[in-house]
Design a protein around this nucleic acid. Structure first.
Length: 425
RNA sequence: GGAGAGGUGGCUGAGUGGUUGAAAGCGGCUCCCUGCUAAGGAGUUACAGGAGGUAACUUUUGUCGAGGGUUCGAAUCCCUCCCUCUCCGCCA
């Protein structure tokens, strides 16, 4: 959420900043509404002040005269009644305006960072660095072929259970998934993160708080009988964990790691990644999340990204770091670094982690603050996948594939998985 | 799902229509006293918004779970909702 006062006082600057996203934003209407609302706020405030004084006077008169229906009192009460009518009329206008403003501002994305590369879509993203040597060879199998050969997961039967884009992990596939979750959680907790296991169902407020609502209601699953949604990412419950709080600045930064199942409708992605583990309605993810003081967030962004990278390094998976351009930034983010893992079968890098600095955008929506120098200021929030489990499995299968059809398990994972190769049973 | 109880400031806890933004206590902060510590004394101590000021600050409004209503005036009366707790039932 952008600051309403800032919009009122700097409409031009708001438009310029938002337009970096490669789309024209016209906020003249919102601006006009905020100005109008301010005038009404001031008028109401002054009428209320008068009305309040009158009420006190009436109270004093009643006590003094021991009667509450003298001619003078009746006239004073009548005047009070006029105040009430006038104020309630204005309040109605104020309410409608406030709602409209809120509605419109909720649909505005965050300002892109000045440091983010300017561009209109993902073709303008910038590769910052690569790590490891991409595995290139002939006759390399896709992870879904490997999965089928080794009987690691099943999508056919899963459509019977649910529908397409669901998967059932089987035997060593399920075991590998579990090993990856435990491995990542252990690595991050060793690294100073506090583990949380939040609810998978979240209410509308929480989705608004992190930016998924109101604009992207189409992208999450909703429960029909309750105000609850299946969480699309642990970022949602983690943000909401501290909703409406003022956090002691001595406790900052707060660093959380959470495993959670994630649910996404993937509307509009028909025909994309229909095979394998890349794009599912339900997937597992280990998420990193920071709450920090504004002055720390640039540093925190580097740290959260390198914490996510450390997992890829330990798993010995080649990857690259991409600086997302202004036109490709997510709604809540001001700057995002994507980590993309090498997938030999498709000879390209695929997103496996997205590390974003949301500045105070989510904190303002969720009202999460801290007190610095006696002033309440909104915190900065950062999130990063550390990592998406399904895509990590896909990468391990493809990058670890051997000529004999087996898959080599990365050394770091062996203690968790229990053996060093995946073979046919 | 059935029955009951309850939601007040950082915490405990008073408060059923009129200077109550809210007693009292605890905690926090400032100052005083004291050789140190302990104890004692005085004061102070919520959040959000608006207006004015470069600022320190001044002023004003709203907020006693949330939203409505009654009234000149609501923490207090009425309605709706949410949440918490206890007991029973059901259940991983």
């Amino acid at each position: 959420m952008l600051d309403q006062k800032f919009i009122r006082e700097n409409p031009k600057s708001v438009e310029e900043n938002l337009s970096l996203r490669g789309k024209v934003y016209n906020i003249s209407q919102i601006h006009e509404l905020t100005v109008k609302k301010k005038d009404i706020d001031v008028e109401i405030s002054s009428l209320q002040s008068d009305s309040k004084k009158l009420s006190k006077l009436i109270g004093q008169e009643i006590r003094k005269s021991q009667s509450d229906n003298s001619l003078e009192l009746i006239s004073l009460k009548k005047k009070g009644n006029e105040y009430r009518i006038k104020i309630s009329e204005l309040e109605e206008k104020q309410r409608i305006l406030g709602q409209e403003i809120n509605n419109q501002i909720s649909n505005l994305p965050n300002f892109p960072s000045k440091d983010a590369p300017i561009g209109k879509d993902e073709s303008n993203n910038i590769q910052v660095k690569t790590w490891g040597d991409p595995f290139i060879g002939d006759n390399l199998k896709s992870h879904w072929e490997i999965g089928e050969n080794l009987n690691l997961f099943d999508s056919i039967n899963s459509t019977k259970i649910s529908k397409s884009r669901f998967i059932t992990l089987i035997g060593n596939g399920a075991r590998l998934e579990r090993a990856l979750i435990n491995f990542m959680l252990d690595e991050h907790t060793k690294n100073g993160y506090l583990e949380l296991m939040p609810p998978a169902l979240v209410n509308s407020e929480s989705l608004k708080g992190s930016g998924q609502l109101p604009k992207f209601s189409n992208e999450s699953f909703k429960c029909s009988n309750d105000d609850l949604w299946l969480s699309p990412t642990a970022e949602v419950p983690l943000t909401a964990f501290h909703k409406n709080e003022i956090i002691d600045c001595n406790q900052l930064p707060l660093k959380y790691v959470a495993y959670s199942p994630c649910f996404r409708r993937e509307a509009g992605s028909y025909g994309k990644d229909t095979k394998g583990l890349i794009r599912l309605h339900q997937f597992n993810k280990v998420e990193l999340y920071w709450f920090c003081e504004p002055s720390q967030s640039l540093e925190a962004h580097k740290k959260i990204t390198s914490d996510a990278e450390s997992i890829l390094k330990k798993l010995n998976l080649p990857y690259r770091l991409v600086d997302i351009c202004t036109g490709d930034l997510g709604f809540s983010s001001s700057r995002t670094f994507d980590l993309e893992v090498w997938l030999p079968s498709s000879k390209c890098y695929r997103e496996i982690s997205s590390c974003s600095n949301c500045l105070d955008f989510q904190a303002r929506r969720s009202s999460i603050r801290t007190k610095i120098d006696k002033k309440n200021i909104y915190l900065h929030t950062l999130n990063g996948s550390g990592l998406a489990i399904g895509r990590t499995m896909a990468a391990i299968l493809e990058n670890g594939q051997q000529k004999d059809g087996s898959v080599r398990i990365p050394d770091a994972l062996i203690p968790y998985f229990g053996s060093n190769f995946l073979k046919t049973a």
